[in-house]
């Protein structure tokens, strides 16, 4: 079942792509999206590799990923609230260090 490994590798790719965006992209909304993509990458790897236990798929990683998706939406809601609070006091929705280098 090499397709499972293909999906796992796509998961690795999403994780590192998200990491790159988290580091280089200045806007907080992009950073939040980047973390979500990283999370999706980890989830994909977890579930895809759980398929190696044929004939019955290993569901424990699936349960873990459902847990993870709920954590992700909670964290996203918090991050968005913080982002809005931050952009109220200083426009641009960026962290101070990103702004100073910008102007």
């Amino acid at each position: 079942m090499s397709m499972l490994f293909f999906y796992a590798l796509i998961g690795v790719g999403l994780f590192t792509l998200g990491l790159l965006a988290l580091v280089v992209q200045p806007h907080l909304l992009q950073k939040i999206l980047a973390l979500n993509v990283m999370g999706s990458g980890v989830f994909l790897l977890l579930v895809a590799l759980g398929g190696r236990s044929q004939p019955v798929v290993d569901v424990v990683p699936q349960a873990m990923v459902i847990t993870g998706i709920v954590v992700a939406v909670s964290a996203t809601a918090m991050a968005l609230t913080l982002m809005l609070n931050l952009s109220r006091s200083s426009p641009g929705a960026q962290l101070p260090e990103d702004q100073s280098a910008d102007s």
């Binding site: 988290l22 907080l28 980890v42 790897l45």
Partner: peptide
């Protein structure tokens, strides 16, 4: 405090994801 908390949140989530990927590999 809001910008510090934002930075803290991004860092702590990144740390958790790296941890989760690590334990995922161990599990598999």
């Amino acid at each position: 405090s809001v910008s510090a908390a934002m930075r803290y949140l991004l860092s702590t989530l990144l740390g958790s994801l790296a941890f989760l990927l690590g334990i995922g590999l161990l599990y598999h």
